[in-house]
């Protein structure tokens, strides 16, 4: 039987009736029309469906929508800040880190979380931070460029180093 789901999506409260067997990806794409969240395998293998749940990357294809009761979900449509695209998105654009763009939403969200937790990641840390999201087009090279550039940009923006760190 369908159940009521209350949660926050991209900063807005949402209330919806969902079937227990609906995945979060399905709920976001089909019920809310947030088709920026992609799916490449539906089994947790590729990272295309990555969204942030309470700020942490999560694979929406193997998460039940109902498991997100009361939580805050951020999709690619919600990472822009104050009407301006996020510095990570800007850097992806500038560096041509998106070829076909299918992995991009998931990767942008992973990178947003990576740079929040670690504002100046090393090469190895960037590689590790991208390792849950497969990109079949780029060889990750330009994506790594974008992460480096975004890190610099975000460091310039942050009023104090503490702001960039993890919330909890």
């Amino acid at each position: 039987m369908r159940q009521i789901l209350r949660l926050t999506v991209n900063g807005e409260a949402a209330e919806s009736l969902v079937a227990p067997h609906q995945s979060l990806a399905d709920f976001l794409r089909e019920d809310l029309g947030l088709t920026g969240t992609k799916h490449g395998c539906d089994l947790g293998d590729c990272g295309a469906c990555t969204v942030l749940v309470d700020g942490e990357p999560r694979l929406s294809c193997i998460t039940l929508a109902l498991e997100c009761e009361g939580r805050e979900v951020t999709t690619i449509e919600g990472v822009a800040r104050d009407g301006r695209v996020h510095p990570v998105q800007e850097a992806f654009d500038r560096c041509v880190a998106a070829q076909c763009g299918y992995c991009t939403p998931g990767l942008v969200l992973s990178c947003v979380a990576l740079l929040r937790d670690n504002p100046s990641p090393s090469e190895a840390q960037i590689r590790a931070g991208l390792s849950g999201n497969i990109c079949r087009c780029t060889g990750y090279t330009k994506i790594m460029d974008a992460v480096r550039e975004a890190a610099v940009e975000l460091a310039g923006q942050a009023p104090s180093p503490a702001e960039g760190s993890r919330r909890d």
Binding site: E90, A98, G101, T104
Partner: peptide, 17 residues
């Protein structure tokens, strides 16, 4: 960058599905 960068990095790009 490239012309079709912005829609791809914002999730606005529309794929068949």
């Amino acid at each position: 960058g490239k012309i079709d960068g912005p829609p791809k990095v914002t999730g606005a790009a529309v794929f068949a599905d």
